[in-house]
Amino acid sequence: MEVSRHWRLRTQRYSLVGEICPNCGVKLFPPRDVCLECEAPAKELFTFTGLGEVYSYTTIYDAPAGFERYVPYTVALVKLAEGPLVTAQLTDVAAEDVQMGMPVEMVTRKLTEDGPEGMIVYGYKFRPISLTA
């Protein structure tokens, strides 16, 4: 496992920190340093609220390496309230209960681990909004 690569991504992974374009105001996730709309440099950090809705989804039964222990699990395209589409796992929900348009919120969960002695990787997942406040 590339420890340094995961370490470099920790801020965006733990708390959905992306960027905002100072020129046109578009919010970017993941951060790319260049605005996708107007191509202006965009390095100003922006923390997303973590609220969004399921745009589309699929359920994984044959997982890639590192994710086998979690099957079956659902991966969704989540449309964040601020605009960007993010690919992420859904959690705290059964596959049959997922619907397009379902409101979701970001939580930080365990994504994978490099075996019993390796690094544990944490990051964003989304769950249905069921708690108030």
């Binding site: 222990r69 979690y70 959690t91 705290d92 930080t108 969960r109 365990k110 544990i120 944490y122 406040a133």
Partner: peptide
């Protein structure tokens, strides 16, 4: 706890609630 939960992930959610 579920498969993707441990003391780290659970502490983060409790801490966010405290901060909110």
């Amino acid at each position: 706890n579920g498969l993707d939960e441990d003391v780290v992930s659970m502490s983060i959610e409790a801490a966010r609630n405290a901060l909110n």
